[in-house]
Design a protein around this nucleic acid. Structure first.
Lengths: 224, 224
DNA sequence: TTAGTCCTGTCAAAGACCTAACAAGAACGG
DNA sequence: CCGTTCTTGTTAGGTCTTTGACAGGACTAA
């Protein structure tokens, strides 16, 4: 992944850095809402449980966000990061599959706040079609492709049963979605220009289990 | 994170490996349910979009799961990984906060399948208390501490509003939970023996956005 | 002005991680 | 019995990532 920074130089941005950018933005928006105007790399890094030098190193790829000697200004950093991450312009999204998980996500307010307004929800179940979640109606799946094309939808959330996941994903790709957030516990195949992010919820649980099982074996643990 | 493998040697298991173990187990359980008996490192790795050598390298920390020359036997590998990850014995869990996201997670069948049976759901809202989700009743939050102690609950899922997240987390810690899966978009502080895993849903979306924004700039992309 | 303190940008070294390569075992067919 | 083709376990080397260190700017107080 390459990018051009403000000085016109090209850098390869490491994946590890990319994964942290949203964490920075998320925290900075919280600070902004709390009225904080300035934040130093040390403050921000400490609150995210990383090293300050790493944070500065990450920011370094994108050119100076501050002058040396002065802490970062939250109100400047937020839009800069938003632009880098690609949420400076809202990214409209849809949820496909209005089961419990789909409905739960549709009700999650945070997405809107971070630039991902929910524009549509789709399902095959006639009992669900017509219901509204926070003002967004559940539409029949058959209308999905036209809706995506007509509304410039970029991202689709996939929360359908495993058995139809690939088929529905194909429809989303055909409609022109560029990113799929896959909550089904299966892999889906897409053309290379369509990004898939698998959200394996159970994986998070298992990592928690692995660590909590070994906690207390303090002699085996390094000061993490 | 150190561990003793079957030969009595101590290895430091890299974090990166730990993060992949649940992926392996998840995939293997799917294969097992499909009736697959044997799987090679190449098959398994390809389906997870990683290199076969990396998978073998990961397994190598825990001692031989197979003999050289023969592929892995799914029925032996699954319990071995379950034991390593710590889900060989079911890890009972509760969900605290029965809002939309909490309900959505409560309806997610996969957790049970992977060794995390849902034993209780808690909320302060009298309108929700008494309802059942898949046979699990929603109880008043005031009963949570006694329930955790009485039922040996290890893991708690936190899906309450941000404003009360820390307070509720404190109650969970006091009750004896050893792991908290935090879905609230805020940090919570716990004693060091309690593991917190933050599930920042919006972070996943932003990574998707970052990548999909830059797709198509093919000249800038290495063959990922 | 000067000393002290806090800050960022930058880089090189250290550390963690991934991967290609290969030895050697197993199964199969001829 | 031998060659072929599959496999895993193992390691060395290369790559990616993190970290500590430091130069120098900005501000404050005396």
């Amino acid at each position: 992944m390459r990018i051009v920074n403000t000085k016109g130089k090209k850098f390869r941005v490491p994946d590890a850095t990319i994964l942290r950018l949203p964490l920075y933005l998320d925290k900075l928006i919280l600070l902004q809402q709390a009225g904080v105007k300035e934040v130093s790399s040390r403050q921000l890094a400490t609150s995210l449980d990383i090293k300050a030098s790493q944070l500065r190193h990450d920011f370094h790829y994108f050119g100076g966000f501050s002058k040396p000697g002065r802490p970062y200004q939250v109100d400047k950093l937020v839009p800069a990061l938003e632009e880098i991450i690609g949420v400076d312009v809202p990214v409209p999204m849809i949820i496909v599959g209005a089961g419990h998980l789909g409905q739960g996500l549709a009700n999650y307010r945070n997405f809107e706040r971070l630039g991902f307004p929910l524009r549509g929800i789709f399902d095959v179940d006639p009992k669900l079609v017509g219901l509204e979640i926070r003002g967004v109606p559940i539409r029949p799946l058959s209308e999905m492709q036209a809706f995506v094309k007509g509304n410039g939808i970029k991202v689709g959330v996939l929360t359908v049963p495993v058995s139809v996941a690939q088929d529905v994903a194909n429809q989303m790709v055909a409609a022109g979605v560029v990113g799929i957030w896959n909550f089904t516990p299966t892999d889906i195949r897409t053309p290379p220009q369509v990004i898939v992010r698998n959200e394996r919820l159970a994986v998070g649980l298992m990592c928690l289990s692995f660590k909590s099982k070994r906690i207390g074996q303090t002699d085996e643990l390094k000061p993490d």
